[in-house]
Design a protein around this nucleic acid. Structure first.
Length: 478
RNA sequence: CGGGGCGUGGCGCAGUCCGGCUAGCGCGCUUGCAUGGGGUGCAAGAGGCCCUGGGUUCAAAUCCCAGCGCCCCGACCA
């Protein structure tokens, strides 16, 4: 779908804007099965860069990768009460294998706590076996009724870390450490500002003692949970009998954690940075960081220009660079095309540039003339590196400013109701499920998280007026 | 699962009400010529199980019955 029609603007129709970008930038396409997506090469390249940035961080914090099976005995899911209640409505179940009805139906994993818990109980016998710090890159299936590419699909790709520890304190520290890893990744690789915080009991992972999240504000001010880290306590250890002999020769249940970040994060990148021209990719994750567009009329001009282009390509070999030498489309088309695909920096090289030993540079984060400049071909690599850094920083600053501009401090309930119609509300909350439910019923806004950073005082609940220890973010969410 | 909508070249649609001739249009695709510093133009082409099955009829994309699928809204949902 390489339509030349204009995108709808974000203001006109944000969700249609999103859908069209995903398809036109060739990130993903609809699969023949409802709710499933095909991640196309450009989208997958973006995911691979996300994987690389996360995987480096996982390794640096002592984790190793492994692979657990897709199919899980149905009975496993039923061993943890909250877990089965949370997930049973959205399970895909295999009942026939090799033409025979199975004695026990198999679940296509919606997440792997159960199968991993089962294996950990075999592997962990002594405190000397702990901690176990394993991550898995894979796919899971959750039978969602209402789907959107990347944001909520029946099948999605993610990583899930699963760790086991000898003490509660150590497991809690791991949960928080990985939350910090996610926040660091979001900010420093994706330029997506996030709020780290604690989920309410209503919003926490089914089976967790508590869940932490990084929440990001999208371009329409709705919130997107972009990564989560769960302290599972001994819930799964008890359900799957993960026991070890401690240093006093006493049997103890292990303390476990799990944490995940999915292809949904691609949705976060799109909706955080994208503009009315299309996708805007953060330079550190962009599959193509620099696109070079040669411009020429005659064959003679072409050979001169291409000579220059090849020199520039060699000079910039340290970047992810693409030369768009398609003869069948005009330069103007290519400008729009690569803007749609979010390439951070465009370099134009034409006869005038060859004559002056220069190139034209166009920054994707500053559309139109304002983002264009000319640069000497000397020291080009250094200049490009600097510009890509600048783009990363400016994307982050812009997104942060947007979030701040759309985050409100309502002082009473009517102000809260008003605030969540067009932004986030940061308000005192007594932490009762009743007040949380009332806000949800009356405004469609849910508690996104209780930020880890809190004011050093207390207040009174925005809903009921009772004493409140902490502030929470209320917002409409994806 | 409730309400609504839609299935016609790759994509988006018209045609269906009121049955009839070679099933059209836009985009995309192929070829040629011109063009090329912000979505080029002209010309010539290729491409169809009109969702599936059954029925009515001299005749069905069009009418009737059944089924399948998809989309939107709601309910549901880390």
């Amino acid at each position: 779908m390489t339509s030349t029609d204009k995108l709808p603007t974000r203001r006109e129709n944000f969700s249609e804007w999103y859908n069209q970008i995903v398809q036109r930038a060739e990130l993903a396409d609809y699969a023949p099965v409802r709710g499933c997506m095909v991640v196309r090469p450009y989208g997958w390249a973006l995911w691979e860069n996300i994987q690389g940035a996360l995987d480096r961080r996982f390794k640096a914090t002592g984790h190793v990768n492994a692979a657990f099976p897709l199919l899980i005995p149905k009975s496993f899911l039923e061993k943890e009460k909250e877990h089965v209640e949370g997930f049973s409505p959205e399970l895909a179940v295999v009942t026939i294998g090799g033409g025979e009805t199975l004695e026990e139906p198999l679940i296509i994993r919606p997440t792997s706590e159960t199968i991993i818990g089962h294996m950990y109980s075999k592997w962990i016998k002594s405190y000397r076996d702990l901690p176990v710090l394993i991550n898995q890159w894979g796919n899971v299936v959750r039978w969602e009724l209402r789907t959107r590419l990347f944001l909520r699909t029946l099948e999605f790709y993610w990583q899930e870390g699963h760790t086991a520890h000898a003490t509660s304190e150590e497991a809690e520290a791991e949960t928080r450490r990985m939350l910090d890893v996610y926040a660091d990744f979001a900010i420093n690789e994706a330029a997506v500002p996030v709020v780290s915080g604690l989920k309410s009991d209503k919003e926490k992972f089914a089976g967790a003692v508590r869940s932490y999240t990084i929440e990001a504000m999208m371009g329409d001010t709705r919130a997107l949970q972009s990564g989560t880290s769960h302290f599972l306590g001994q819930n799964f250890a008890k359900a799957f009998d993960i026991q070890f002999l401690d240093w006093n020769n006493e049997m103890q249940y292990a303390w476990t954690t799990s944490w995940g970040l999915s292809t949904r994060f691609i949705g976060a990148v799109i909706m955080t940075h994208g503009d009315d021209q299309g996708l805007v990719l953060p330079p550190r994750l962009a599959p193509i960081q620099v696109v070079v567009i040669p411009i020429y009329k005659s064959d003679q001009e072409k050979s001169l220009v291409m000579e220059s282009v090849e020199r520039v390509r060699a000079e910039l070999a340290g970047f992810r660079i693409k030369v768009d030498d398609r003869p069948e489309v005009t330069p103007g088309f290519k400008f729009n095309d690569w803007e749609m695909r979010g390439v951070p920096l465009r370099i134009e090289i034409g006869p005038k540039d060859v004559a002056k030993d220069s190139v034209a540079l166009a920054r994707r984060d500053i559309p139109g003339k304002a983002g264009k400049s000319f640069a000497s071909q000397q020291n080009l690599a250094q200049q490009v590196a600097q510009i890509l850094e600048d783009i990363h920083t400016s994307l982050h600053i812009r997104a942060l400013a947007f979030r701040q501009a759309n985050t409100y401090d309502p002082v009473d309930y009517p102000e809260l109701v008003e605030a969540v119609t067009h932004g986030w509300a940061y308000a005192w909350w007594c932490e009762s499920p009743e007040c949380e439910a009332k806000v949800k019923d009356e405004t469609k806004a849910t508690t996104r998280c209780i930020p880890l950073d809190q004011p050093d005082r207390t207040g009174s609940c925005i809903v009921c007026g009772k004493p409140a220890r902490r502030k929470v973010i209320f917002a409409r969410a994806y």
